[in-house]
Design a protein around this nucleic acid. Structure first.
Lengths: 143, 143
DNA sequence: TTCGCAATTGCGAACGAGTTGCGAAACTTG
DNA sequence: CAAGTTTCGCAACTCGTTCGCAATTGCGAA
């Protein structure tokens, strides 16, 4: 995924990119998979502690309006959403250190095909996240 | 079983994870074998003395409804529960309606193997989530 | 540069649904 | 029936989210 993609996209569409938004957008881009407003907020806070939760919500709203993220309201609890990504990029995310590694599409293609044909489920082939443990973390602790 | 599994599972299903619930869930995960409401209650009390017995019962109810624990009423005075250890299975979650579908391990095994051998990444083989669109939702909207 | 104005922000209060604590009531079993 | 276990009703509270509003900001025009 191109870094700064969201920022460019807003600019391109003539939407104001304020410092707050820039920070929020960058945080979103770096987060894998399905995330909540709270997740974004905490990530954003690490960069600038004076950004308001309401601003995060408003930015998320904005992105939804621009079709740059999709949200999944699963009912009672926090709404989850995901980046509508353009290039296929799958992530293996380490539960321990949080680092993530991209892995190629080909690896997943058979699964995605199978889900489509046998389960009538159209996987988001462009952005799959698999959690686990990376090399270094795996040695010390395992699940 | 992955620590925090129950908490993650509730979150994933869009169920609110309140502090009380988090404490109760962690207590359950740490208790071996068959347990009673009272067992959970006393364990929970060690962490926070203001959590109510009724809340424990309600959480147990919730978990049963979500098929995360099974009630094993063995005629003893108090009903016993056990954490339901699912066989490895994975979820395909619809981004539109939030419904999720299980699919078997075999489908993913090649990917998990490949991640291990070529990327030195130990995937959490027990619980991978793939987002996408289910049959009915897929017709109206696509990513 | 400065101006004007709409867009954006921070803040605190408000919202509705879901959850909790409490005490009492209702089971269950010996 | 007594002792232990489980459920109930309900008001208070929490949670994630949105709102209203005054202050601030970004940016094109002057």
């Amino acid at each position: 995924m191109t870094p700064g993609y969201l920022i460019e996209e807003l600019k391109r569409r003539g939407v104001r990119v304020t410092p707050q938004r820039a920070i929020i957008l960058e945080a979103i881009e770096e987060m894998p998979g399905h995330i909540t407003a709270e997740d974004v907020f905490t990530a954003v806070q690490r960069v600038n502690r004076y950004i308001n939760l309401a601003t995060v919500y408003r930015t998320l709203d904005l992105l939804r309006g621009l079709d740059l993220i999709i949200e999944t309201d699963m009912g009672a609890s926090a709404v989850q959403f995901a980046l509508r990504s353009h290039a296929a990029h799958h992530h293996a995310v380490c539960r321990q250190c949080g680092r993530s590694f991209e892995f190629p599409d080909e690896l997943l293609a058979p699964v995605i095909d199978e889900l489509a044909t046998h389960y009538r489920f159209t996987a988001d082939a462009r952005h799959v996240v698999i959690f686990g443990w990376c090399d270094s973390c795996g040695e010390t602790e395992r699940g």
